[in-house]
Amino acid sequence: MDTYDSQGPTSRRRTSNLKDYFVSATPLQKRLKLARRQSSVFPSPSRRKIPQCSQLQEDIDPQKVAFLLHKQWTVYSLTPLYKFSYSNLKDYSRLLSAFIAAEKQKGLAVEVGEDFNIKVIFSTLLGVKGTQRDPEAFLVQIRSESQSSREHRQDKVLWTGWFCCVFGENLQETVSEDFTCLPLFLAHGAESNTSLIGGWFQKTFDCCFSPLAISAFNLSWMAAMWTACKMDHYMATTEFFWSVPCSPQSLDISYAIHPEDAKALWDSVHKTPGEVTQEEVDLFMNCLYSHFHRHFRIHLSATRLVRVSTSVASAHTDGKIKILCHKYLIGVLAYMTELAIFQIE
């Protein structure tokens, strides 16, 4: 018992020392604290803000980001890049071009057809971020230089990939100064090019890519949030796709609604202005499920939601998105960044 008593005060002193140690937390300790707090598999705030046109949007030249829209992007989450510098973009272009040329000589790169010269271009994407503290987004493109001398610029874009971070302050706080946090990576083009460039980035900046799968839970959040966005005119019908697992092969169910009907349904469910809550998302989806059940006697809630498509954007559970409306580009990217950060952590 004596040993217990003597250990009592010392252990108390020790824990208070530890507490002091944590108050001036290094980035690593902040990460550990964050990791310990997260017990669930994916993020579940009970409410999120409906995407609005943020002030930064005004700075974005719609022409410059037009090429980001109407394209299907495969989404990856990316850990912070070590010692990445925006002033070295030209050097990175040269290094990556050389790397790809070398790989091509080894016979590993994709055949482009004729013997084009491959050019890699790094450029910053101004304005594609949430707050001023987010790092600048940047773009990597593989262009083939045509040999014909008739027209000066006849570059064909073979592959496009861009890195961005929208409202990612939480992640930036947990890493030291040497790291640049751009957790969202989107690629369009041949898969072999993606893995080639991904490999180069992993070697050069000591980071790690992983495909971002979007769960049915998050897809229903996206459906609700994007239906909630105010649109002047609707370009596409609102569609949902479910996959029913059954032998021998799975059944796919698609459910298309007129976008104005979807918005009307959302408005009847929606209460708090400017925010979307978990209850509203559940209610919105349950209305769709019960309507379907009434007509077809199928319980959609027992199946798996695999794809959601609205006039704002569409998303597939395998991690593919397509953004259709430039007004809400930042809003869509903000949600994707949140998912990417969650996957990294």
């Binding site: 669930s40 598999v41 579940s44 769960s215 049915a216 839970f217 809630s301 798996r304 939601l305």
Partner: peptide, 13 residues
């Protein structure tokens, strides 16, 4: 079903 996160429609919470 908690293992296959991408297939989850119900949150663990």
């Amino acid at each position: 079903g908690a293992g296959r996160e991408s297939h989850c429609s119900v949150h663990q919470n």
